[in-house]
């Protein structure tokens, strides 16, 4: 058997990869935005919100953090239709990513909120702000700034996890590689290209989050 790499064989399939990159970016951006929003909400409930809701959020966080993403995805895509909730593969994939990221982001953001000095809450209260106003205008932004690097890493992990969505026929980068290798049997080449695409996307995502960070948190705060 002749052994050799032939990346030329992939030339015809460039559009397939381009589409795949688009879908992976869409999953990451939509899933990431909604997931972080869910995480902020859950972190608010766990630190400031109604006491009744706290055990519910804790249960959600523990359930998600201790089960594999693949099973969560299959449960949503294959399991939920049998109780009457069915959705397309893209919706299922995004829902799974949001639920997954929401749980991790909740714990990360909560750590950021809990690191807020007491004085900040007291200062907010002394200005006659409600607890929610204090959270929204005083606490949240510095808390996010504190944990921004951890949140970025988690987002990269979630993007890598999105490779699994190819299993429910979401046409992302992994799906593209699977498709190509089933056509021309150049599996190794296809997966190397896919891996490099993920690597490049991860670098871009980190840069993007850094830029977003500097835009969101313009003032460099002195170290306490």
């Amino acid at each position: 058997m002749a052994v050799g790499l032939d990346f030329g064989a992939l030339a015809d399939y460039v559009p397939v990869f381009v589409k795949g990159v688009g879908v992976t970016v869409e999953l990451t951006v939509v899933g990431g935005t909604l997931g972080i929003s869910l995480g902020v909400t859950c972190a608010w409930v766990k630190t400031q919100g109604p006491k009744l809701l706290r055990p519910v959020v804790s249960l959600y966080v523990e359930l998600i953090r201790n089960t594999p993403f693949l099973i969560q995805l299959f449960f949503i895509f294959f399991g939920l239709p049998s109780i009457g909730v069915s959705m397309g593969e893209m919706e299922a994939a995004i829902l799974a990513m949001v639920i997954n990221l929401g749980a991790y982001a909740c714990e990360i953001i909560r750590a950021g909120i809990e690191a807020t000095p007491r004085g900040q809450f007291e200062a907010g209260a002394s200005l006659a702000m409600s607890r929610f106003q204090t959270f929204r205008h005083v606490v949240l932004r510095p808390a996010l700034q504190r944990i921004w690097p951890a949140l970025t890493s988690q987002l990269v992990i979630v993007m890598f996890g999105s490779a699994v969505c190819s299993q429910i026929a979401v046409e992302d980068i992994t799906f593209a590689a699977n498709f190509i290798q089933s056509r021309n049997f150049r599996a190794f080449e296809a997966y190397i290209v896919a891996t490099l695409l993920y690597l490049a996307l991860a670098i871009l995502l980190r840069q993007g989050m850094r830029l977003l960070g500097t835009a969101l948190f313009p003032r460099r705060r002195a170290a306490r």
């Binding site: 890598f160 996890g161 490779a163 699994v164 992994t174 590689a177 290798q181 599996a187 190794f188 997966y191 190397i192 896919a194 891996t195 993920y198 690597l199 991860a202």
Partner: peptide, 12 residues
Amino acid sequence: TPLLMQLFLFFF
């Protein structure tokens, strides 16, 4: 890199 890619690369 994603673990899934690593699995595929080892497998193929």
